[in-house]
């Protein structure tokens, strides 16, 4: 009697398990960057509403983990803020970079009593993060902000302690504007910081800057806005002080689109275009050109197509910059080139 009941419930359980596996057959798994996670989860949610049965599971484990997992083919797509190096590419032949949105990194600071937005340039930011300018009343900062009364307050640099795409974009910018930075520190997801405190995550940096008078740090645009932090306008190569916004970030990407190489791996920091905010970067989805599973490949290609067109309208609300039309066109070509068994997935 009891045994029978156990057997029945076991059978029911097995049945349930099988059906639920069937349900996820229309699903994809991905892993990677944490920076675009808010927009990606929004996309998967919205896309699932339009296409019933398509279920995309994304683990935001970090760009490094995303690259490792797609290289080992344990996920259907990877995601990374930094594009893959030549060495990494050689281990994952056929991998394609699809830029999805653009993120701006802003310089946040805590200076009570200074009402106006500060303007900084590459040289000043580098000197501060190298630990060479240590006081807010420094002549260099003052010369960039005529008419602003700067307090004599010690500067405390706050940087990310965890490896991150945000750090990669920020140090990429500093390496572009300063040969000294490029030589002594360089660019990476984490670097050997010459000065300051490390805080974990964008929220950690935002929290630390918020609590410490005289602090300066860098976060994604979204964290600066939602935490009500002051953030600086940055002088670009054209010499204009540009306030980071979704529009000025997209302009930076549009400027870079002209020199974009065929594999779309490009740094867009410090562009020469007018009105372009200079500290920004693409975030990428990583997919194999030749898909092993045609059904899954089709779902993936359809989703990518949707993301770079209809999906873009969700970006500004989450303070990501949408792709400029030039880059969308390049993405289209990449997605059309995706194949399964040699046949294109998108007609």
């Amino acid at each position: 009697m009891t045994w029978n009941r156990v057997r029945t419930s076991l059978a029911a359980f097995v049945l349930l398990a099988t059906t639920s596996t069937c349900g996820t057959a229309g699903g994809l798994t991905g892993a990677g960057a944490t920076f675009p996670y808010p927009i990606y989860s929004k996309w998967f949610d919205e896309y699932g509403k339009i296409n019933k049965g398509v279920n995309i599971n994304y683990q935001s484990i970090g760009s490094g983990g995303g690259i490792r997992q797609i290289t080992d083919r344990t996920v259907d797509f990877g995601a990374s803020d930094a594009f893959m190096s030549e060495e990494q590419l050689s281990k994952a032949p056929g991998i394609q970079h699809i830029p999805t949105v653009i993120g701006a990194v802003v310089v946040v600071y805590n200076l009570p009593g200074v009402g106006a937005r500060l303007t900084l340039d590459g040289e000043a930011i580098t000197s501060i993060f190298l630990g060479q300018i240590t006081n807010w009343s420094d002549a260099k900062i003052a010369s960039l902000n005529p008419g602003v009364k700067l307090p004599s307050k010690q500067i405390t640099v706050v940087h990310r302690s965890d490896g991150s795409g945000t750090t990669n974009i920020f140090t990429d910018y500093l390496s572009h504007v300063s040969t000294q930075w490029a030589k002594s520190v360089g660019k990476n997801t984490s670097v050997n910081w010459p000065a300051g405190l490390g805080a974990k995550g964008n929220e950690g940096v935002a929290g630390q800057v918020k609590g410490l008078e005289g602090a300066i740090g860098y976060t994604e645009l979204a964290y600066a806005v939602t935490n009500n932090l002051s953030y600086a306008a940055v002088k670009n190569r054209a010499g204009e002080a540009v306030v980071p916004t979704v529009e000025s970030t997209t302009r930076a990407a549009a400027a870079a689109a002209k020199q974009m190489p065929a594999d779309l791996r490009v740094s867009i920091v410090n562009p020469s275009a007018k009105g372009a905010y200079p500290i920004a970067g693409f975030t990428y989805l990583l997919v194999y050109q030749e898909q092993k599973n045609a059904a899954k490949g089709k779902i993936l290609a359809d989703f990518l197509w949707w993301a770079i067109h209809d999906g873009q309208k969700f970006a500004p609300a989450l303070l990501y910059a949408p792709l400029p039309p030039q880059v969308v066109a390049k993405d289209e070509a990449k997605i059309k080139a995706l194949t399964a068994g040699g046949k294109p997935l998108i007609p």
Binding site: G64, G163, T189
Partner: peptide, 9 residues
Amino acid sequence: IANEFSEAT
């Protein structure tokens, strides 16, 4: 380890 493992490329 906690800070840098996930992005160690």
